[in-house]
Simulated assay, not measured.
Amino acid sequence: MTLHPQSVAFLTDLGEPTVPDADQVPAVRAQARAAALAQSDRIGLDAVLDLDADGVPVRLYRPALGAPAALYVHGGGWVLHDLETHDAFCRHLAHRTGWALLAVDYRRAPEHPYPAPLDDVETAARWLREHARTHRVDASFVPGIGDSSGANLVAGLTVRDASLLDMQVLLYPATDREGVLDPALDTNALTAEQMAWFWRQYADGSASPEVSPLRHADLASTPPTVVVTAEHDVLRDQGEAYASALSQAGVPVSAWRALGVPHSFWRMPDRFDLSRATVLAVGALMDARRTAHL
């Protein structure tokens, strides 16, 4: 299929893609953070709390007292983005689904390569289980939600300890450090060359299945999973290969390809109709899985 007109407009606004330079990372981060903080139209919730999860900064988005809670892990190639860049979207996600979110401000590469980001996600997941009641949310069933490299960290967490999450929701996940990326799927949102650079910053040379969950020898232990890929995305094929491998291992999987859209569409409900529809679908799947679990 061709790109949806909303995708064409988004990619045009992005301009030509460039491969980041390590020296430029602080400036790129600061620019993205400043742009996010300049946004004034933010959804109000019952509570938005900046907390300390045993040394890991986190932000709790609570749409209502007693709301079920999920762990949220942002993307950005393990290098970029933070709580602020995803704040507006996390508010939208919590509001539209009714789920509380614990967003993790994990340490980032290249200053803190693997396993530091995954260590922080694990710490936050354990903290959520232990302290949910204190903050008036329900952690009896905890999904992990992640986009892009954040989805990789969620999937890596299920490799490290499958008991920490009851479900994983992965948006255009990176699942294979050694996977061949098709440059024909390059867009201004993400190119194969950029993705290779991000992999090197996070886990250069690592063969751990925590880095490449697709290569995990015991996929059968993975919790029920939702995988959403984007049609025009260099990570599409490895995300779909992961979903297929999970299904073959007997894991309950819901997977679909979002047509006409590029990488990053999920966290932009103001620009993509399909983002808003996907949020509602994810919320319904989490509700259904939670009901079955309880």
Rank of each mutant, 00 (worst) to 15 (best):
P57A: 01
V261F: 00
A288K: 13
C90D: 11
P63I: 01
V73K: 04
H232C: 02
A67E: 06
A220M: 11
D270N: 10
G44H: 13
V73N: 09
P173C: 03
R108S: 06
N152D: 06
P113N: 13
L259N: 08
E240V: 01
A288F: 00
P173H: 04
G205N: 08
L219C: 05
V25M: 08
D87R: 07
Q31N: 13
G250R: 10
R29F: 10
S148T: 09
S140I: 04
L165F: 12
Q248M: 12
W78M: 02
P117R: 00
L274A: 12
R267Y: 05
L128K: 08
L93K: 02
V226M: 03
A220D: 13
A243W: 00
A32D: 11
R129G: 15
P143A: 03
S254C: 12
L49I: 12
L65W: 02
A249G: 06
L170W: 01
E193S: 14
Y172F: 14
R33S: 13
V226R: 00
S247V: 05
A196D: 15
Q238R: 10
D41M: 05
A132Y: 07
C90T: 11
D82P: 09
D52H: 05
R107F: 12
V154F: 01
D120I: 07
A207V: 13
E178R: 14
A155K: 01
A116R: 12
P26W: 01
H112F: 11
S40H: 13
L102G: 03
L14T: 05
D166W: 01
R96G: 06
D82H: 08
D54L: 08
R42C: 07
R236M: 05
D182I: 10
G75L: 02
D138R: 07
G44I: 04
